[in-house]
Design a binder for these strands. Sequence first.
DNA 1: ATGGTTGGTAGCCAA
Length: 260
Amino acid sequence: MKIATWNINGVKARLDGLVTWLGEASPDVVCLQEIKSIDEAFPREPIEALGYNVATHGQKGFNGVAILSKRPLEDVTPRLSGDEDDVQARFLEAIVPDDHDGIVRVVSAYMPNGNPIGTEKFSYKLAWMERLEAWVDDRLALEEPFVLAGDFNIIPESIDARYPQRWTEDALFQPESRNAYRKLTARGLTEALRTVTDAGDIYTFWDYQAGAWQKNNGIRIDHLLLSPEAADRLAAVGIDKHVRAWEKPSDHVPVWIALS
DNA sequence: ATGGTTGGTAGCCAA
């Protein structure tokens, strides 16, 4: 089964591209971030017409996540535990049937950007990642296959940026941010892309500004982290980079895995 | 490179 993650930067502005990509990539499950829509305004019909079930956790204007699935979605749960006062729509969890009469737990997550550093936005980013660590500990104890997918807003290593020196003052490349990411893999989660290559120059985001796409000035911030039970079944990993060259693109591209 | 571009909104904010 194929599971993808894509920060689409506005589902209504991106509907044509989303429908085109769903048709050509035919993923079983899609984790969307930055839908920038309330649940009632999410364009469900054209997506359901392609055979997808739709679960959304949106808010007005910004943030917002969704999960699309050709298979039934069960136990759909919004919000990351650990802060009842956090109203930002950044986390949606669901269970999907696998190919073997079992299940895969899937999360669509949109981690805080955290800029500028030294502000409450950066401390919110770090606090959010701590809450995510607690969630991972809880779910690892279930010994299930799970896929934590999304826009992590973290550049894990220098090779994950075309020009790492330009990111040294950015929240996405701070040591605290990278350490928070490393803590997840240290808990036993497998970063899908790094099971197939240790190469650099592989990106998932190119800024709209200053011709970043044309210059290949990208960063790799969209990741799929797998529990041991999911990692055992990892069969393929891909990045649909060509989508970035389409008309009216998102600044991110889809990243996907196949599980046997 | 201290600018630049986009989406949602109608506040310029968030990225």
